[in-house]
Design a protein around this nucleic acid. Sequence first.
DNA 1: GCCTTATATAAGTCAACAGTGAATTATCGG
DNA 2: CCGATAATTCACTGTTGACTTATATAAGGC
Lengths: 122, 122
Amino acid sequence: MHAFDVLGDPVRRRILEVLADGELTSGAVADIVQAEFGISQPAVSQHLKVLRDSGFATVRPQGARRLYAVDSTPLHEVDMWLDHFRRFWVQRMDSLATELARGKRGRRLATTHTATPKEDPR
Amino acid sequence: MHAFDVLGDPVRRRILEVLADGELTSGAVADIVQAEFGISQPAVSQHLKVLRDSGFATVRPQGARRLYAVDSTPLHEVDMWLDHFRRFWVQRMDSLATELARGKRGRRLATTHTATPKEDPR
DNA sequence: GCCTTATATAAGTCAACAGTGAATTATCGG
DNA sequence: CCGATAATTCACTGTTGACTTATATAAGGC
């Protein structure tokens, strides 16, 4: 299964998000996902299997539990594929940054925004 | 259709790649894709429709032809989702953002940028 | 050794999607 | 206007994948 197919499922994306904060048991993942998506435990287990088989997650047995963690390798590959297109938005951000760097504080913003992309002003 | 579902299809990914180099007519896209994947012209047209409907591509009629171009907005959203995991492979997670915020014009596009000017004392 | 908890697998159903060929719409050159 | 070309839409089919319930494996506590 290709990386993008794996990420195509919202349940799997959510699992990866919760695993991003640290490893969790299968049961802990299932509790979260079941609460949010209302699917059964076997369904979650099957998603975890997909994540395992496609390299997005690793497992470490601990007694009867299985501790899951993110393996970022395929995510990094996805990120690298995006390099084909990054110039499309880096250029925009760059010009915006330049504008800001020049102290152009004018409440201009009149570049006819079609949408307001929420940007993290960190 | 979610952005990741759109990107789940290899034909659609390829279409976006070829469009990344500049706009092309539907026919030009079809020629490339048909040569590489061996599918019919209507199949390509249907993929173009998916890309249109999901915001990945824009169309501009030019006589009897239709010129397709990439719209990077949903790709940018995908890129932002990856922020959840970028720390796994980027040491200085904020390097790009900082660079841009400072209006640094040496637009190195620092992908897989491993060199650190100073070692991190942890 | 049992019973319980934790997790995975099995078997089957259903909907969605990618593909096909045929038909349709639209534009151009004469 | 007409025929040719460009492209999309239609109607249908096969495959895939996500879900369910039921069951199996494995470890822990008593």
